[in-house]
Design a protein around this nucleic acid. Structure first.
Lengths: 127, 127
DNA sequence: CTTATATTTCGCCATATGGCGAATCGTAAG
DNA sequence: CTTACGATTCGCCATATGGCGAAATATAAG
């Protein structure tokens, strides 16, 4: 990210400026997740989560992969500028020890224990 | 900043989410400045700059020092958590090479060449 | 004590942001 | 082709944010 325009830098910091996006990112650093799983984790509407994912992706912090009807997101890792990796590490170092992040990690285990299809059913056809 | 609550983390990232605040911070990393000088650099109203300084200070990124009627701000440095220093270094590494930052640096030289008192006069008694 | 002045606070406005539900899109399955 | 469904886009609302000028604060100077 060195030598970038300030606006590009603030695109990243803005993306990291929302607690729910940080929570999502911390989860995505642990595991690749589909939107439904993030919805379950954050307790937000699918449309809201989708928007958050778009912001994180626009900032270059996450990547996505489409598989059938599902879209999987993960923290940026492949062929990514060194600076992005450093940012992700920074976020992780700063937040992964927090109470909220630890609780999210615990919830994430439960979410991962069922398959996405089953999960989406439980969400009352919200997505 | 390790193990902080996510809200404390986003206080920092939010503070870094505005281009004018980043520009101010980059200047403050180079030199301690009074509000009038930042006003001159950014071309914003004194009240606006004052608010920006408050946000940066709240986030722990800058410190201030009062000297008579003047308030001087500088990038946090003394007895500051290691993590804050790393953030400041990150901002500097990311942005100080940008065109905007370089232009600001050039303008800053001119601003520093006159004394603050003189500068405030030129600002048409706006502050 | 009064005046001048650097900064901050306050009140206001315009725009941005985060949230939701409804509608749309894209793809798998009947 | 039609249906089902996960994800996204759209339209809307409430709140947050960044901007300014005016008023208030605090301190130096007369």
């Amino acid at each position: 990210m060195a030598n970038r325009k300030i606006d590009e830098f603030t695109a990243v910091t803005k993306a990291l400026g929302d607690p729910n996006r940080v929570r999502a990112l911390l989860a995505l650093l642990q595991k690749e997740l589909c939107v439904c799983q993030v919805v379950e984790l954050l307790g937000l509407a699918p449309s809201t989560v989708s928007k958050h994912m778009a912001v994180l992706k626009q900032a270059g912090l996450v990547e996505s992969r489409k598989e059938g009807r599902w879209v999987y997101y993960r923290a940026a890792a492949d062929e990514v500028p060194e600076e992005v990796k450093e940012v992700l590490e920074w976020v992780s170092n700063c937040c992964s020890g927090s109470r909220e992040a630890q609780e999210d990690s615990r919830n994430l285990e439960g979410i991962l224990s069922m398959d996405p299809e089953q999960l989406c059913q439980l969400q009352g056809n919200r997505c």
